[in-house]
């Protein structure tokens, strides 16, 4: 564990806490893409298949459980909670995320560390996580002004993988046989997708104006 990865994990956890705060405090999920939340739930379920077989550390196990439980709870809440689901922007959240699922799985069959069930699902979760934010970014562009908590949620979600890139660079230079090409390249793509969001987020922060993504 290094400071970059720990900071990344804390940002990831913060993004989830901000999203939970928004949904439970405002009893609303307006501006949140259910499709992105469904993709994230799949990412964690596919990545943490080894939850009960490979014990890395207490921290690792607890964080995996937190990510799985929180992501599935958010999906459940947006679909089933009578109050919350009324505020879901169904007509705006129309990104065809099944293509992202199919493309990620097809790529995982072709490019993986080892052609085993667990490694294919691990690579699938890495590729899927890289594109999972797309429905959310499209929804933000369509829904015009973005409320603060939603903006902060997306910001921390994007920042976490940027810190993971620093973590991979650090590990590359400090560990002998360290190579995570699949995660690293996918992480670069993932962070690049946030580039324009980060730009408009910075502008809104600098000018102290409402965050607005151009359509």
């Amino acid at each position: 564990m290094n400071i970059f990865r720990f900071a990344g994990d804390m940002m990831h956890l913060t993004s989830i806490l901000v999203l939970l705060l928004k949904i439970y405090a405002t009893k609303s999920c307006s501006g949140i893409s259910l499709k992105t939340q469904e993709l994230y739930a799949l990412v964690f379920l596919a990545r943490y298949l080894d939850l009960f077989t490979d014990f890395i550390s207490v921290y690792n196990t607890i964080m995996k459980l937190v990510f799985i439980v929180s992501s599935t709870a958010i999906v459940w809440c947006m679909k089933r909670d009578r109050v919350v689901r009324r505020s879901y922007d169904k007509q705006l959240d129309t990104f065809r995320h099944y293509f992202l699922l199919a493309a990620s799985f097809a790529l995982a069959l072709l490019v993986n560390e080892k052609f085993t069930f667990q490694e294919i699902f691990w690579a699938f979760s890495i590729y899927l996580e890289a594109v999972a934010i797309l429905p959310q970014l499209v929804l933000l562009q369509r829904s015009g002004n973005v409320d603060n908590l939603t903006g902060q949620y997306v910001f921390f979600l994007g920042a976490y993988r940027a810190f993971y890139i620093l973590n991979w660079i650090y590990r590359y230079f400090t560990e002998t046989h360290f190579s995570r090409w699949i995660a690293c390249i996918s992480g670069l793509v993932q962070t690049a997708l946030y580039a324009d969001f980060f730009y408009y987020y910075y502008i809104s922060w600098k000018n102290n104006t409402k965050l607005k993504l151009p359509a």
Partner: peptide, 10 residues
């Protein structure tokens, strides 16, 4: 072969 703690990251 992948050493067993290969996926030690979240």
């Amino acid at each position: 072969d992948l050493d067993d703690d290969y996926h030690d990251e979240l």
